[in-house]
């Protein structure tokens, strides 16, 4: 089965690679780019841990093949902080509100939240809950996560 040459932008850097078609975007990011912040929980589109931004949209990177991302723009959790390594407002809010315990689900939540708050800068609590309903936290630390999103939304607003 033939391998395919791809070129995409990952966290603003042009990245070229030759990949087997069955390689998922998640495995591409982790294994070829060394960006292991994107986590793989279920690998079939249920847990949300592998969420990345594809052309700005939050998607599950385990349900996209790397070949499908050829020519597109990908942002991972590693691409969200400032140039000096400072935390993004969402990341800071997760830290302030204990929005993580073991941390496994955190990259998926943070990436999902970044896109959600960009598109909905003034969300209701219900909208926040719905926005992260596709991300599972098995520590069940949801209250801290929701508090973090609320705080990040309020910080953006003011």
């Amino acid at each position: 089965m033939g391998e395919i040459e791809i070129e995409l932008r990952v966290n603003e850097a042009v990245t070229r690679s030759t990949v087997p078609p069955r390689l998922t975007l998640a495995d591409f990011l982790r294994e070829r780019c060394g960006l292991t912040g994107t986590h793989l929980g279920c690998e079939h589109g249920v847990c949300g841990a592998c969420t990345v931004l594809l052309d700005g949209d939050a998607v599950r990177s385990c349900l996209v093949f790397a070949v499908q991302a050829d020519g597109h723009d990908v942002t991972t959790i590693e691409g969200l902080d400032g140039p000096d390594g400072s935390l993004s407002p969402v990341q800071q809010a997760f830290r302030d509100h204990h929005g993580l315990q073991c941390g496994f689900c955190t990259p998926g939540f943070v990436v999902t939240a970044e896109a959600f708050l960009r598109d909905n800068p003034d969300p209701t609590d219900d909208q926040i809950r719905e926005a992260v309903s596709g991300n599972l936290c098995r520590c069940t630390g949801y209250q801290g996560i929701l508090a973090a999103l609320r705080a990040a939304a309020d910080a953006v607003e003011t």
Partner: peptide, 9 residues
């Protein structure tokens, strides 16, 4: 339908 990450694709 699904969640936002699903509907985006």
């Amino acid at each position: 339908i699904g969640h936002v990450q699903i509907r985006n694709r």
